[in-house]
């Protein structure tokens, strides 16, 4: 489904990704782990098409289509979903309006009729229950005044509504207490399906206790330096990143957040 070949990317002229190779098949869950500054978030942002990140080499295809030729909104309509590490607050746009506009943009892209307000309200209420959000939040501004956990649950709720082909979860576990982690993980597990791939970017392995990955990759210094099965995550938990020969400056901020 997703194929990344020798991907290089820079921010403000500084090269962050230095040749990433990754193949993700439909139905698989991949975890990308690594210390801070290794390029995890850059990879997520590049996949979603953030223009602040410049792709300087390599290619990305989604189901054979060249992703790098597509604008952010086209990628989203083709099935890419990024759950933000720091979801944005947009006062003045209600969650309901935002979610419905997004769902309808997808429907229009697929040639389906738009969903009307009443129907959507019903759907939104159901999905909000699934991530344990009070439906009253639908009337509030997008993420406005939400706690960290509520923002993350809202991201998962959006994924459930938009039903992407590839869901990228950028540090979705950060800032969650144990109960919220459970709710978010249940939401992600509900997303798992044979025709959908999930890419989890995380610093900690604790999320992987709830969402069991098929593959684990270690990203350091802008490259994937090791790949393995689930046991790799457990090994990282036990031994830290040091044993993989990651240089000191790469691990210096490891416990930073």
């Amino acid at each position: 489904m997703l194929s990344i070949k020798n991907l290089h990317a820079s921010v403000e002229g500084k090269e962050i990704l230095k040749g990433i190779n990754l193949e993700v098949k439909a139905g698989e869950v991949h975890a990308i782990m690594g210390p801070n500054g290794s390029g995890k978030s850059t990879l997520s942002q590049v996949l979603a098409g953030n223009e602040a990140y410049e792709v300087t080499g390599g290619e990305i295809t989604l189901n054979g289509k060249n992703l790098l030729e597509q604008e952010t909104e086209e990628r989203a309509r083709e099935g890419i979903f990024l759950a933000f590490q720091y979801p944005v607050e947009i006062p003045g746009v209600s969650n309901l309006q935002f979610l419905r506009t997004a769902v309808n943009a997808m429907r229009t892209h697929r040639g389906e009729p738009e969903i009307n307000a009443a129907e959507f309200m019903k759907l939104a209420k159901e999905v909000s229950k699934q991530v344990d959000l009070d439906p009253a939040f639908l009337k509030r501004g997008v993420n406005e005044g939400f706690s960290g956990g509520e923002k993350k649950r809202n991201e998962i709720m959006q994924a459930l509504l938009l039903q992407p082909k590839l869901a990228i979860l950028d540090e979705t576990d950060s800032g969650l207490d144990i109960d919220a982690l459970k709710v978010v993980s249940d939401g992600v597990n509900a997303l798992r399906s044979e025709d959908r791939a999930i890419l989890m970017v995380t610093h900690y392995q604790r999320l992987l206790n709830h969402i069991v990955p098929d593959h684990v990759h270690v990203l350091a210094g802008g490259r994937i330096i090791k790949s393995g099965g689930r046991e790799l995550a457990l090994e990282l938990e036990e031994r830290g990143y040091g044993w993989l020969g990651i240089r000191d400056e790469d691990t210096a901020n490891e416990t930073g957040q």
Binding site: E71, A76, G92, A102, G141
Partner: peptide
């Protein structure tokens, strides 16, 4: 905010309108 909206499939024009409207809503 614009990137957040378009990353959900919302067109750029509509995202601009939503954000401008939010300013005076």
């Amino acid at each position: 905010s614009l990137f957040y909206l378009v990353s959900r499939g919302i067109g750029r024009r509509e995202a601009n309108v939503l954000l401008t409207m939010a300013f005076i809503n």
